[in-house]
Amino acid sequence: MAILQLKNVSYAYKNNKNKKILNSVSTEFEKGVFYAILGTSGSGKTTLLSLLAGLDEPQYGEVKFTGEDIKVKGYRHHRKNQISLVFQNYNLIDYMTPLENLKLVNKRADKQILLDFGLDLTDIKRNVLQLSGGQQQRVAIARALVTDVPIILADEPTGNLDAETADDIIGVLKQSAHMQGKCVIVVTHSKHLANQADVVLELKNQKLLQLEKTMPTR
C-alpha cells in the first residue's frame, strides 16, 4: 500500500481562485523510494509539497497517509508524527546549537548523527548561524532523520549549495530512502538531482506526470 497518496487534489490560490495550481492530481508515493518532482518556477511545486506536508489543505480531493485522509487525525499530527521537512534555506532555529535543533524533534537525539554527517565536536557546540551553508543543510537533514517518521519532504534542498556539497546531501537523501526505507520526496528544478532519483515526476499544466521510473537499488 502507498504510504502517501494524492487523490483528485485540486488547489487554487485564495486571492485568485480562477488560477488553478493543481487540477485533480492523483498519485501515490511508496516507502524506500526517492522521488524527485520537477517543475518550472511558479508551477506549484512548493504548494504541492505543502499539501503533502499538511501545511495547507486542498480545496478539493484528499491527501492520504496509509490510506487515511490526513485531516482525520489532524494536520499537526501529520507534521509531527508522519513527515519531516527539509527546506532550501535550512530553517534551523537560530539561537540553538546543531544538537539542540535535533532535540526539537527528538529529546533523545545524540550527537553521533551529526558526527556521522561530517560535523566535528566544536561545530556541534556552536550556534547554527556560525556553520557553513552545507553544514546547516546537513543539520537540517539530520533533524529530519532523527525522528521515526517514514516520510522526508524536501524543498530544493541543494538550491543554496555548491555542487560537491549538493552531491553529499543527495547521497544522504538517497541513503535514507534505500537504507532506512523512508519515502523521500524532493521538489526541485535541478535536473542533476532528478537524475539521482528513483522516480521523477513533473508538475506541468496543473498535472503531475511521471517521467520515468526505475526500481530503487538497495
Binding site: R79, N81, N91, I93, D94, L104, V105
Partner: peptide, 13 residues
C-alpha cells in the same frame, strides 16, 4: 515569524 514557521512545520502547536 521564521521561527514560528519552522516550529509549526515540525508539528509544534
Amino acid at each position: 515569524i521564521h521561527e514560528t514557521g519552522v516550529l509549526l512545520s515540525l508539528g509544534v502547536s
